[in-house]
Amino acid sequence: MRGMARTATAALMAVGITVLAGVAVAAEGTALKSHDWPFEGVFGRFDQAALQRGYQVYRDVCSACHSVRFLTFRNLEGIGFGADRVKALAATFEVEDGPNDEGDMFSRPGRPSDPLPKPFPNPQAARAANGGALPPDLSLIAVAREGGPNYIFSILTGYQDAPADFELTDGKNYNPYFPGHQIGMPEPLFDEAVDYADGTKATVDQMAGDVAQFLAWASEPTMVERKRIGIKVVLFLLVLTGLLYASKRKVWSKIKSH
């Protein structure tokens, strides 16, 4: 029994350490809005319809300034686009290729293996077009920010007038969810900004939720596979560990006197 108490204490401390690690960085800004995401939890899955709507929001609104350099057209099969649709979609974009045999760069229609086109050729051009601020690449935004999809959702739905005593720098916009409360990005979403292909009403909350889920998928397209395999692995290990425990007890029963 004493041994059990010790084990419990040690386990508690282990948990304590991991909790501490989890809250390592003090969060700045207001507490984030919390949103129920279908992909959270052990059995979480992405909502394909939401992913497709989110892609549409990205394409129609965000892609003007933000790249997603780690996504190729081919990857969009992961949000439910068929191979033919992906090929056709890719071909609607002109992509730079080359140099050809004359040493010149040339344009050609996109292919599924091409990455989604960047709005700006380099960070300097991006800054020049955005008042010195660099719109970050969105490929990993959902895992590169504390709060992930909740952070994205909060930012997109969090624009409001600055409080009277707040000194807002020229060119910046007030958003209480952004560290420092001043964000370079002007409010990107307005009701009906996107005409959804599936007919869903495009409120700001709807678009913010859809694009946040799309970006969560973009940050980790393999998430569903990860959880699926995880369930199998954990179940397998539970069985194996149970068998190992029974074997251990059997081996040791030979010498235990009580």
Binding site: T18, A21, G22, A24, V25, V42, P136, L140, V143, A144, R145, E146, G148, S219, R226, K227, I229, G230, I231, V233, V234
Partner: peptide
């Protein structure tokens, strides 16, 4: 690994 792989990591290292 399968259910909280980034729990012990710092988000900013994904930048």
């Amino acid at each position: 690994v399968f259910f909280a792989p980034e729990y012990l990591a710092l988000p900013i290292n994904n930048e």
